[in-house]
Design a protein around this nucleic acid. Sequence first.
RNA 1: GGCCCGUUCGUCUAAGGGUUAGGACACCACCCUUUCACGGUGGUGAUACGAGUUCGAAUCUCGUACGGGCUACCA
Length: 512
Amino acid sequence: MSKKVRVRFAPSPTGGLHLGGVRTVLYNYLFAKKHGGDFIVRIEDTDQNRYVAGAEEYIFDTLKWCGLEPDESVQHGGAFGPYRQSERKESYRQYAEQLVKEGYAYYAFDTPEELEKMRQTPIATGNKTEHGHTQQYDHSIRMKMRNSLALTTAETQKMLAEGTKHVIRIKVPEKETVSFTDMIRGEVSFDTSTVDDKVLLKADGMPTYHLAVVVDDFLMKISHAFRGEEWLPSAPVHILLWKYLFGLENMPQWAHFPLILGPNGKLSKRDGAKYGFPVFAMRWNDPKTGELTEGFKEKGFLPEAFINLLALLGWNDGTEQEIFSKKELIEKFSMDRVHSAGAKFDYEKAKWFNHEWIKRFEVSNLRFEVGELLKQDGFVVSNEAFLDKVIALVKDRCVLLTDFVQQSSFFFKTPEVLDIDAIKPKWNEAKQLFFAELIRNYELSSGWDAHTLENNFKEIAAVNDLKPGELMLPFRIMLVGGKFGPGVFDIAEMLGKEETIKRITMAIKVFQ
RNA sequence: GGCCCGUUCGUCUAAGGGUUAGGACACCACCCUUUCACGGUGGUGAUACGAGUUCGAAUCUCGUACGGGCUACCA
């Protein structure tokens, strides 16, 4: 009997949540839900220097918008708290001390200056001193540094007793092969001689990621540990810690997701919107710089489309299906169909996903968002039934939610400027007379539906020996203001008799 | 530089030894539509390179090249 599936997303609250982060959340979430497990969010705030106000709150807001609610977290509670690493500070030291006691780690007293000097020391591996090579704090140099391995026991005890600032480093064995099975990449192995003695416990008593992730994954009974590929190089450290602390048999199964690349490599939080597309899920307001970065939400993406597009960036179900609801994703997701290669983000395709979702969405699902957008732009939306009809009429031509404003503004407000250039050259007296007659006809019209409106329009055109086609565009410009929008007669029907006639009348004057 | 991961149309990907290498986005053409879209039909376009294993390789192995990641008392 296998243990319960428990996965975690462990962000550090230092800024906005970008595409890669959300996809990591998504895959964690899908995997958990697929296997009836728990999805946990653990805040990794062990670096006090990088604290950013509001970032934690922002992460949860983003998850909520995406529809990826955790089962356990700072906000959702749970039996394995606290879910903020800074609040677990006390528990880490004992594990680090245990490692020292057992000979798997050691105290290091080196000052930042000494470390800097060490990095400069040219290393002669073989016989060449390569440019750009930085010396790592590893087996080759640790006996020359100031740590409990190189110092005598008495010296170490004295420094400890005096309260000398120190860290605890892992003592990576020299010639071992550490390997593990990655759910996506298969067997991955490392020669420990190339792994450095990472700091486990910092001078301020806080653990580094390396110690914290292992301890917390154990304490929180995490069954599967998923994270981005950028963590692969430090995996041997974590494997070693599991071996020393809790036993390899208790270690979660690992999967390292491929990176999502921008035009210049890995997407990073700092890239903001400089690529011409958002990198954050939602708007991020950096309290330090005051910089406001818009996200996919503000850009007009539906959360359903957003997670759909993210899911397909590195995963597919083996069929040609591309549009998946969250329910379907949960049903069909499987880790062995996740790609191992990084994926370059394609904003055009992202927009296509959103367009597909808008087209497929029921009007009632769009009503609220579209209504808000229109109000934001100063349009008065008083009648919900009318709004619904408008949405139904224009949604096929809206790629982003924000397109609704431009596509439907003329339903709510008489256009202020008309695209006269499209009409003027071909405007003549015959056409003017036609529209005058059209006004009279429409005024007397008893029925006001697109069909009769169109019939009457064409009848009058025929009687006056005019081509309906040449009159449709002017009519459109009169009602819409430009060369876009749904069928003209549908628009006229929606606008109603009074408004339609008003717009024709006004336009005739403008065209003269 | 070292270590690790990766490499199929411009982009996302399918094809887990035998296919005319399939689909989607984008692009182009035509049809539909006397607006713009939607929709429909068709088109351009890819297995990085070199060896090997095999009757047969995009698929397995090795090398090379290229790309990416990591190389902090950051995650």
